[in-house]
């Protein structure tokens, strides 16, 4: 139940736990991990302090994006079961505080990045925050079912920023890692969208299953999974990674495609528990974690 923010004329100060929840900590964990992998895969040695500060800046930037996203989407979140308990729709935090917190955190993350690393990484971090807030959240998400496809670019920035923070320049491998997350995002989110479809429909968000229908979404999951698998394996034959990464990518991508075939070729009836979709969604998270771990392992302990 929503808790009143104002008691008489006196507003309650926001609880720090609600401010923390505003940063979407679970999403941030994947951002931090992929950024760290980008930084550790770079062919230079980075001072641990500067590396830590750069990753912290990326994490804070991602937190700021999450906070500004939740501020803008508070009305939509209130309509969805999955998000109704967030601090803003639940009434535990007022929108003004969330907006100030998001902008302040974004500004601080950019300052920290500039102080700890270089202007190139700072520029990329600023671009990723602006892209997520303005292009994805405000423009694409409420307008087109392709929101996830193009918006996926925002989540693909961290390994690139990590690499640039370490080296000061862009190289083919981090661009391939960017491409990998970019192509991974549609099957990952559409698998989720399939089993929370009614939620998105209730909020009026044009997610693919709501607009194009379930069968079309399933076909597109399979299509993107196949291109993603090719993009995941590509760094090995192209010579940017070694056999350790290559074999991990081959095995995990085959499993990913197999799970996507299962999702892509089936039809569901009423009361379906959506187990294959849930399995694909859960595996997609592990897939990205393990693959990025393999990029680092391959750089430090090549076969």
């Amino acid at each position: 139940m929503a808790q009143s923010l104002t008691h008489g004329e006196t507003a309650l100060p926001a609880d720090w736990r609600d401010l923390f929840a505003l940063t979407k900590p679970r999403v941030m964990s994947l951002v931090v991990f992929t950024a760290l992998c980008g930084l550790l895969a770079a062919p230079v040695s980075v001072s641990p302090v500067l590396g830590f500060a750069s990753i912290l800046a990326i994490a804070l930037g991602a937190g700021a994006s999450g906070a500004l996203n939740q501020w803008y989407e508070a009305g939509l979140d209130a309509k969805m079961k999955r998000t109704a308990g967030r601090p803003l729709p639940a009434g535990r935090l007022d929108p003004q505080t969330a907006l100030q917190f998001g902008i302040g955190l974004a500004a601080f993350s950019l300052f920290l990045m500039l102080f700890a690393s270089n202007w190139q990484a700072t520029l990329l971090l600023a671009a990723s925050i602006l892209f997520y807030v303005f292009v994805y959240t405000m423009w694409l998400k409420p307008r087109t079912p392709q929101n996830i496809v193009i918006g996926g670019a925002a989540g693909a920035f961290p390994p690139l920023i990590g690499w640039v923070a370490a080296t000061g320049s862009v190289a083919p491998l981090p661009v391939m890692l960017f491409l990998l997350i970019f192509l991974w995002t549609p099957p990952h989110f559409w698998a989720l969208a399939l089993f929370v479809r009614s939620d998105y429909a209730a909020a009026g968000i044009p997610m693919m299953p709501v607009v194009a229908g379930e069968q079309s979404t399933r076909r597109q999951i399979l299509f993107y999974a196949i291109i993603m698998a090719a993009a995941a394996i590509a760094p090995w034959p192209l010579g940017y990674t070694g056999a350790l990464y290559g074999w991990v990518a081959v095995i995990l991508s085959l499993i990913f495609v197999a799970l996507s075939v299962q999702v892509g070729t089936r039809r569901t009836g009423d009361g379906d528990l959506m187990q294959p979709e849930k399995r694909l969604f859960a595996f997609s998270i592990a897939y990205l974690f393990i693959l990025f771990g393999a990029v680092v392992a391959d750089r430090w302990w090549p076969l």
Binding site: S4, T6, H7, G8, T10, L12, P13, D15
Partner: peptide
């Protein structure tokens, strides 16, 4: 409206 809870107000401020 819930009654003003000064203890909660102070707890949040302190935390």
């Amino acid at each position: 409206r819930e009654p003003f809870d000064e203890a909660e107000y102070r707890r949040r401020q302190r935390s």
